[in-house]
Amino acid sequence: MLDVNDLERIRQMVRTAAIDELMSRFNDVSAATKADGSVITEADYAMQHRLQDELASQWPDFQLLGEEMSAAEHQRLLANPGAGLWCLDPLDGTSNFAAGIPFFGVSLALIRQGQVLAAVVYDPARDECFSALQGQGAWLDGEPLVAQAMPETLKASMAMVDLKRLPESLITALARRAPYRSQRSFGSVALDWCWVAAGRCQIYLHGGQKLWDYAAGYLILREAGAAGGLVDDYHGDWLPADSLTPRIAIAATHEPLLAQWREWITQHLED
């Protein structure tokens, strides 16, 4: 499998491709709307095609599952992943990109036998690269990334919450009596996970993420020592990160804070 030298090669590959294919188009975006209502641009396709070709040239035994493939192709690849499966979101935060908002990224993970083994999330607007190897740690621009066990309470925390996909009762509870100090929603799921790992926000909630949204960021968060995971419902146990079914994401910078956050969420689901 991949080692730290391979990970550095991937970081450089993703960075160079993002500068060429994304940043060159950032101020001249032509966008369209997909069948599900989400935004798509030429940059999404260009980035996916480029990384698919470059990854295949270096690791020919691994297939690639990209967001901009068909649902049938997604299902076929996940059912028959072979020696390993790259999972790519070529432009996470396309709506931001199309609107000229500099918060978007590239998310790439390697999945084998249901486990996420390696991850790279690159933010070309800030030239920041988050990465991780399963069991070996996480890094930000090549330096170790270690989550901090602060703050200790929800009241002192900054939250990253996407309200769009949450139950109405929970949205109402958050609007009326939010338990945290402040709230943000930036529009790039992959970077959300990484920013919690880096302590820029301390608690996280998102009601519906797909595999290419969370695979890389989830590994980075866990390898940094932060706490969190994926569930099918708000009361459920943590699930493995290898399904095409959209998942709920709940996270915090450390376990005691995560326990407070999950307790508050479940208490206010039916308010």
Rank of each mutant, 00 (worst) to 15 (best):
D6W: 00
V14Y: 00
E21W: 13
R25Y: 10
S30L: 05
I40N: 05
H49F: 15
L51D: 03
Q52I: 09
Q52S: 14
E54M: 12
E54N: 09
D61A: 15
L64M: 12
L65S: 03
M69V: 11
M69S: 15
S70R: 08
A72F: 10
R76H: 13
L77K: 06
A79G: 05
L85M: 13
L88Y: 06
D89N: 11
D89G: 12
L91I: 11
D92L: 03
F97D: 10
V106S: 02
L110R: 00
G114F: 02
G114P: 01
V120I: 10
R126P: 05
A132V: 07
L140T: 11
D141K: 03
E143H: 12
A147E: 01
Q148V: 15
S157T: 08
M158W: 04
M158G: 13
A159D: 13
D162G: 15
L170Q: 04
R176V: 07
R177H: 13
Y180E: 04
R181E: 07
A190Q: 02
G199R: 00
G199D: 08
I203P: 00
L211G: 00
L211W: 06
W212D: 08
A215H: 00
G217F: 04
R222W: 04
A226M: 09
L230D: 10
D233L: 08
H235D: 15
A241V: 07
D242L: 14
S243C: 07
I248R: 02
I250N: 03
A252V: 05
E255R: 11
W261F: 04
R262S: 14
W264M: 07
L269I: 15
